[in-house]
């Protein structure tokens, strides 16, 4: 138990940690590409109104041929025009604005509400757990799209008079509610395992209150599991938003293009004739979801709780 004995091996330990850190600092090629793509799409969505791109509502009707065929690339329109003469680059960037806002908003909502409910269910167990789990089960029993549709209909109906909620907010809320049970169940399951750990009992023995144990001791351990599902959900929400538009309850394409309603609209009208119109938003969604997952993995690897083995 000599102190000297305890310190000497730590020199080796220090070297080991340094190697690990250096390894973890690097993003790697895929990580860098993901980060660059997300920065690009995020910034351009954020700054869309000030970018030197035409308004998405601006129709270059004169450039569209009589048969509805628009040139794939024309000077000044890098990604071409759609059948209505709208600039595809502008559509995609403004679409990102709407889609990402809804997707992140909805997933954040799901994380916060689902996280809180799941944490409470897993921590308090018993009646609280039974109540919350039943709630989750009820929501999960309804097909997601139908649930989202009815929620949108309900929310837009009730906010029609007041005008309190914009369509984006309504979508955010509706899809957020749909995303809550899966995230909540992950939080609950993870909380159940973590609250069995002895450090939770140790915290209680120290006199920590429930609130502290839940949010300081358990939540940081539960978050990684939730994050991995949340990142996947972003992609699902983008697509769901498009599905709702297609059914006529989402964000209207003529009001505001979004990736979702672009995919929905072009898939219906232009898939055979102008497949690139569909592929542009699809590729944008694909790259974004891929990048999010990729970065998510890297972040998780960095923050993952490492534990010694004896």
């Amino acid at each position: 138990m000599s102190v000297s004995g305890a310190i000497a091996p730590n020199i080796q330990l220090g070297a080991k940690i340094k190697v690990e850190k250096e390894k973890r600092k690097r993003l790697g090629i895929t990580g860098t590409i993901s980060a660059v793509w997300l920065a690009l799409i995020g910034l351009s969505a954020l700054l869309a109104p000030w970018l030197p791109i035409p308004s998405p509502k601006q129709a270059y009707i004169d450039l569209v041929q009589p048969d509805g065929n628009a040139p794939f690339s024309t000077s000044g329109h890098v990604l071409g025009l759609d059948g209505g003469g709208h600039d595809m680059l502008a559509q995609t960037i403004h679409g990102a604005r709407v889609s990402l806002q809804i997707a992140f908003g909805a997933v954040m909502f799901g994380m916060v509400v689902g996280g809180f409910l799941g944490l409470s269910a897993g921590f308090f167990k018993g009646k609280v757990d039974r109540f919350i789990s039943t709630l989750f089960d009820i929501f999960l029993a309804v097909p997601a799209l139908i649930l989202a549709m009815s929620l949108v209909a309900f929310l837009s109906g009730s906010s029609a008079q007041s005008g309190f909620l914009s369509i984006e907010r309504i979508m955010m809320l509706a899809l957020g509610i749909v995303a809550t049970p899966p995230l909540g169940r992950i939080a609950r399951a993870s909380t159940l395992t973590w609250s069995e750990r002895e450090f939770v009992m140790a915290a209680r023995a120290q006199g920590a209150k429930n609130f502290k144990i839940m949010f300081i001791e358990i939540l940081p351990n539960v978050l990684p599991a939730m994050m991995s599902i949340a990142l996947l959900s972003v992609g699902v929400v983008v697509v769901a938003e498009g599905g709702l538009s297609l059914l006529g309850v989402g964000v209207n394409f003529t009001d505001k293009p979004s990736w979702g309603n672009m995919i929905a609209l072009y898939a219906q009208t232009d898939l055979q004739l102008h497949p690139w119109l569909v592929f542009t938003p699809i590729i944008a969604v694909f790259l974004t979801v891929l990048s999010l997952n990729n970065l998510g993995d890297i972040i998780r690897a960095r923050f993952d709780a490492k534990e010694t083995t004896l």
Binding site: E198, A202, A205, E217, A305, E307
Partner: peptide, 16 residues
């Protein structure tokens, strides 16, 4: 009153 547990890994929060 305090307690020391059997599993030294499980009794420490890995994130703190």
């Amino acid at each position: 009153l305090q307690m020391i547990f059997q599993d030294p890994i499980s009794s420490l929060n890995p994130r703190r």
